[in-house]
Write a protein that binds this DNA or RNA. Structure first.
Lengths: 228, 228
DNA sequence: TGCATGGTTTGATGCTCATCGAAACATCGT
DNA sequence: ACGATGTTTCGATGAGCATCAAACCATGCA
């Protein structure tokens, strides 16, 4: 008999392949309809509907009705963090769904984690920002320095807007494939959006892959002082 | 159809209340026998045996036969990290097993996380170490500074031994109750052991609670420069 | 060589729940 | 108003599995 949070309830929600596929599909931060999720999960509409109801009831998903469509998204960014942690552990333990798929390398290079950049380039970006004194680790938190504020403003990020929301500006998120942190939080999300606006990178439809153009990749490396 | 690590397998293992109780009981880093775990989990010996077999098969637990006893422990420290993450999320979402139990405050103040100090005092200690320049955040990793090495040696920590193992010396572990990191890794484990050797604190049998004596608490605060 | 104790295996039972087809419901475009 | 599309509800089916009692195996002690 133990006290404390009920981890079994949450784990059981993620313990079904269908539901796991659903939340993984939502890990890119998008909001998908019930039908899309059913297809992604490889189940029929009724089963998906039942799963979605349970996930919503369990507090993992948020539902937004829009006309005849039902959009679902992760209820909280922290859920994405947990999923990355689960992936890391599953990988270490050797539980893999398939032999490394074809688009696996692209996924390891650059992917979306909820709504920010993850993968090799994601952690490299955070490293660069810290090395150049734009972000600072402080009491285990990430803080934007004055130099960092100037840098972001120059890069076209509207910090004022970002500080409006109650979501933290900077946050370290442990990367699944790199096993080191990358930048999350509203700033991380804004940066990824900016990359897309600048045409440096684009999201691959229906996957978490972020594809950089050769020119965009070069600009990216130059901006954050990456050698690789 | 998705690729990548199979999170459902791992989550399903943790999704049963019996198994969740088992791993939670092992979260204090101890190695317990099958019988003890059966009692902790509130199931009979046969069911526990089945659960333990599945957990071992799944790579979450390591078994060590000693005579007619079977000792189980978490297969890897990272599993403890994931469990704390799961607890944090479950708490946020509002899944609690019971109304806050009686020993809950003690647990939030100071407890064992796998083998190192967690809770209010755990994060305060890390804060103090960083503030005083003994640990430094670097590229998202924790590093022991020169001043820190001197401090640890003076405090009676044998760094040479710690560096032998392949386990990282310092590691940040996200605290379940405080939602901020505390110090893990072999150094974190060594510090907790030292506290016990000095008589500052002692483990409460059969729980994760770490109980500081009044004098020990004062020494602790003085050593790490805590005001609270 | 026995007896006690810890642990696992086996077998049987019952429950939860994932799944899908069919039908009902809701919304949109025409 | 009506057909088309997206979504949920209902009902039925089946599989997986958690559970325990009883039997079995192994180790330690006398």
């Amino acid at each position: 008999m133990q006290t404390g949070p009920d981890i079994a309830r949450v784990a059981a929600l993620l313990g079904d392949p269908g539901r796991a596929n659903i939340v993984t599909a939502l890990l890119d931060g998008s909001a998908l309809t019930a039908g899309e999720l059913a297809r992604q999960a490889g189940v029929t509409a009724p089963t998906a509907s039942a799963h979605l109801a349970r996930l919503e009831q369990g507090g993992l998903l948020a539902r937004q009705r829009q006309g005849r469509h039902n959009y679902f998204r992760l209820a909280h960014p922290e859920i994405g963090q947990l999923l990355e942690g689960l992936m890391g552990l599953a990988e270490r333990i050797g539980h893999r769904r398939t032999r490394t798929g074809p688009k696996e390398p692209a996924l390891r290079l650059a992917r979306v984690c909820y709504d920010h950049l993850a993968g090799e380039l994601g952690v490299a970006m955070l490293d660069g920002l810290v090395r150049d004194g734009r972000l600072a680790h402080e009491d285990g938190q990430l803080r934007l320095t004055e130099a960092g504020e100037a840098f972001m403003a120059d890069f076209g990020i509207g910090l004022v807007d970002l500080r409006q929301g109650r979501r933290p500006l900077c946050r370290a998120c442990l990367d699944w494939s790199e096993r080191r942190p990358h930048l999350a939080g509203s700033l991380g999300a804004a940066l990824l959006q900016r990359f897309q606006a600048l045409g440096w990178a684009s999201r691959e439809a229906g996957s978490r892959v972020v594809r950089f153009s050769p020119a965009g990749r070069a600009e990216f490396a130059a901006t954050f002082g990456l050698t690789g």
